[in-house]
Every structure is written in C-alpha cells, then in structure tokens.
Simulated assay, not measured.
Amino acid sequence: MKVNEPAGFWIRFGAIILDALIIAVPLTIISVLFTGGLAIDKYVSNTLSFLYSLLTPILWNGYTIGKRICGIRIARVDDGTPPGLGTMLLRNVVAGILYAVTLGIAIIASAIMIGVREDKRSLHDFIAGTEVIRD
C-alpha cells in the first residue's frame, strides 16, 4: 500500500495563488466586460469561481489548475480516490459557512493546522474527509 505524502502549507498556498492568477483574475475581468462594470459583475465572477473550485477537482481527479502545476491534489482520506460532488460540497460550502460564522478565525486555525499537524489536514479537510497530497 502506497503512503501518500501530505502537501504542506506553502505548496498549498502557492496552488491557491496560481488558481487566483490563472482563473479568478481573468474571470473577474471577463465578468466586468460582459456586465459593463455593474454590481452584478461580482456575483458573476464569484459564482464562476465557486463552480470552478467545486467542479474542477471532481472532473479532473482532485486537481485544480494551480494544484496540477504544483503537483498536489485533493484525495479522500479513506481510499485516496478523487473527491465526489458530496465531498466537494462539504469541503467548500460547509467549510465556507464555518469560516464565515467564525469571522475568519477558523481560516487562521486551518492555516495553523496545515503548518503544524503531521498529516497537514485543515478544518475543511476534516469536514469533508479529504487530504491534499503530493503526486
């Protein structure tokens, strides 16, 4: 049985930055161009970014573009398989609600958990039963 090496804080942070630069910034620019800079442009870009972060790991075996570039992916803890829709909904929606309810304190706790825990799992990893591993 192959033991997966967990991805640490900096490589995960780098993947998030790459996703933001490659996906979120262009989506924002495109939504501004299509909506003429109306207030709806934030709704459009936020919706598209949410769908990207929710669906891409399902359709691309646990990868987003940033994660693929960094050589890391999301996997289920129990069997190492890519996440499904329910898993990604838990990871993104439920964890997002937790982060909002705690006014961001849980995000800081998650970052610390990734930095200090041996398995490098954050709160949203525990909620969804996932881990981020190196390929």
Score class of each variant (00 low, 15 high):
115 G>T: 05
67 K>M: 09
2 K>G: 12
93 V>I: 08
58 I>N: 01
88 M>Q: 03
95 A>F: 05
10 W>E: 08
128 A>H: 02
52 Y>T: 14
48 L>D: 14
114 I>V: 15
88 M>I: 07
64 T>M: 01
30 I>T: 14
3 V>W: 13
32 V>H: 10
102 T>R: 05
64 T>A: 00
130 T>L: 07
38 L>A: 13
113 M>E: 00
81 T>F: 04
51 L>W: 12
33 L>P: 06
90 L>W: 08
87 T>M: 06
30 I>N: 08
20 A>V: 13
95 A>W: 05
51 L>F: 15
88 M>R: 00
75 A>N: 08
117 R>Q: 09
86 G>F: 10
82 P>K: 00
61 N>K: 07
40 I>K: 09
15 A>Q: 02
44 V>F: 11
105 I>Q: 09
90 L>I: 10
135 D>R: 01
54 L>E: 02
72 I>E: 00
29 I>E: 12
61 N>H: 08
83 P>M: 03
33 L>I: 06
28 T>A: 08
34 F>C: 13
43 Y>S: 11
91 R>V: 12
74 I>W: 02
93 V>S: 02
76 R>F: 10
16 I>W: 10
28 T>C: 10
124 H>L: 01
122 S>W: 03
78 D>M: 06
20 A>L: 13
74 I>G: 00
6 P>S: 08
121 R>Y: 05
73 R>V: 14
79 D>Q: 03
8 G>L: 07
